[in-house]
């Protein structure tokens, strides 16, 4: 079990380095996109470097996903406790609604309150990514066989011990699956932030669409897609690690 795991980590590390090199190779993008679209006057977005866009994007995804997890997992846990059980339908409906809202609409609603830029986008991403995390947490905890929790309580574990030693380890995989979905959604959705000046890989995409420059669009879309694949592989690997630790 150890050996293949280590190899997979190595592959992921190599892919990350490759990705970093790719986004910092300004000249390569200019040559490549120039060759693809010889008629365009400019092929790379003038507002910043690809490295800037990528780092901005990562900041958006990182902050919003951290918030989503920090709120979503406890929320999911709470509604499976005796004290929060009655709120479960409400919470489920709420996070469901958060996801049906188009992110652009959330931006439009959040802007008057939070102004332009970073935070309205974070709010939109947070609401949008909450559903998979909360429902993953609920599903994970409910997948724990009742006999197992009964044994835990019957053997004298406190409620916290049952949660920390039995329910969460057994639910970890399902919760992680929810987190993966949420992060993947966030990486894609974060591009809309460019519409209100948040930056990120959405800048060349949305800018390119506005001026009908397909080279710009590709310059943003390709790294965004690669980022989504990489993040998923990374989280899948982390999930595997959890799986090994918990049998």
């Amino acid at each position: 079990m150890k050996h293949p795991t280590r190899i997979r980590w190595a592959v992921i590390a190599v892919a990350l380095v490759g990705f970093a090199l790719l986004v910092s190779a300004e000249g390569m993008w200019r040559d490549l996109l120039g060759a693809l679209f010889p008629d365009y006057r400019t092929v790379v977005h003038p507002r910043g470097t690809l490295v800037d866009f990528t780092l901005e994007h990562l900041a958006l995804v990182g902050v919003s996903s951290a918030l989503t997890i920090a709120v979503g997992v406890p929320l999911g846990i709470w509604v499976t406790r005796r004290s929060g059980r009655e709120f479960r339908p409400l919470v489920s409906a709420g996070v469901d609604l958060g996801q049906t809202f188009p992110p652009v609409a959330v931006l439009a609603l959040a802007m008057p309150v939070l102004g332009f830029g970073f935070w309205p986008t974070i709010v939109a991403l947070f609401l949008y990514g909450l559903f998979p995390v909360v429902s993953g947490t609920i599903a994970g905890i409910e997948s724990v066989p009742p006999a197992v929790t009964e044994a835990a309580v019957g053997m004298g574990m406190s409620r916290w011990q049952v949660l920390a030693r039995v329910e969460l380890p057994l639910a970890a995989r399902v919760i992680m699956a929810g987190v993966r979905t949420s992060v993947a959604i966030n990486i894609g959705t974060a591009t809309v932030g460019a519409a209100i000046g948040t930056g990120g890989l959405g800048v060349p995409i949305i800018g390119g669409l506005a001026v009908q420059n397909m080279a710009y669009v590709l310059q943003g879309a390709i790294p965004a897609a690669l980022l989504a694949v990489l993040a998923d592989a990374l989280l899948a690997q982390a999930e595997e690690g959890l799986g090994v630790a918990t049998g």
Binding site: A147, E150, A152, M155
Partner: peptide, 18 residues
């Protein structure tokens, strides 16, 4: 405290799978 002093074997075994 009570339960830690009473060995308990439940109807469906309930071993911890992890």
């Amino acid at each position: 405290e009570l339960r830690r002093g009473l060995g308990y074997v439940i109807q469906s075994i309930g071993l911890f799978p992890h």
